[in-house]
Design a binder for these strands. Structure first.
Lengths: 138, 138
DNA sequence: GCATTATTGAGAATGATTGTCAATACCGAC
DNA sequence: GTCGGTATTGACAATCATTCTCAATAATGC
């Protein structure tokens, strides 16, 4: 028990709640910048840095998931999304950003097996499926 | 055949070859900056921008794969690696960067099936497995 | 209510990546 | 082999997302 409280106690603030709420409103993934803009447009005065901090906290506590927008334009921003607590993956529409959560025990097991086969321990994985959703295929 | 050559013809240059070669020397993933440094240390005078351009070309032509270094420190740089032509995934050691190529038809099918089930077309996917390799587990 | 101190917000700072543009070198034609 | 058109290069500026700084603010325990 050497947890000598190096970590300061967390406080609940309006802006963190605002970010959490704004994030839960979105259907797909949003960038921190977009979320900041949305909040400002809704009258909030949150600072951009605060949005980043709040999102980092949410991601750390498992309330949000983040992916890297490599396929899209830009310098590769980080996109966030409010997510269920249990481990899962995403099926994302590259056109409209609509996202479906995928739970697949099979693949989890496969990933771990592959890692183990190669002598890797403490394995984790990143699995995202992209495509064009029905609405966007028109 | 409306390929009205909007795209200029590609040329083979020493620096592109140098980048290709330097990349093939590495066992794991390297950042563009690292590769640039290596090349300079080897006496080359390649510019950083050129390394980025060469890597982008290689990635586009399928000669290299790229991943986003989110798990590692830094502002999330893009890492590159020379790769076999056929579609595959990676098992990467988070400690030393050692990388094993994984071919898994099973998962390919699974990913496509999931996409299809949800009405998604033109599906693609990103699958990376991370862990600590045998040598690093000590 | 009050003091303590985590959190905020504005802007500066950082760091990776891309754009600019004159100089260079590749490639096909002669 | 030489020549010319032009893709490519390299040095540096510019951009963009993200993080840091620090004084001001507000949440929490008493």
């Amino acid at each position: 028990m050497n947890q000598t409280m190096d970590v300061p106690a967390k406080r609940n603030t309006k802006q963190k709640d605002a970010v959490r709420h704004a994030l839960s409103e979105t259907t797909g993934f949003v960038s921190a910048q977009d979320l900041h803009l949305v909040l400002r447009n809704h009258g909030s005065t949150v600072g951009l840095a605060t949005v980043y901090r709040a999102l980092a906290d949410l991601a750390a506590s498992g309330e949000a998931d983040s992916i890297q927008a490599t396929s899209v334009a830009g310098t590769g921003e980080t996109l966030f999304r409010a997510c269920g607590q249990s481990h899962h993956h995403h099926l994302i529409c590259t056109e409209c950003g609509k996202t479906v959560e995928i739970a697949a025990a099979t693949v989890e097991k496969w990933a771990e097996a592959i890692a183990a086969e190669n002598g890797f321990t403490e394995s984790s994985h990143t699995i995202e499926i992209y495509g064009r959703c029905a609405s966007c295929t028109a």
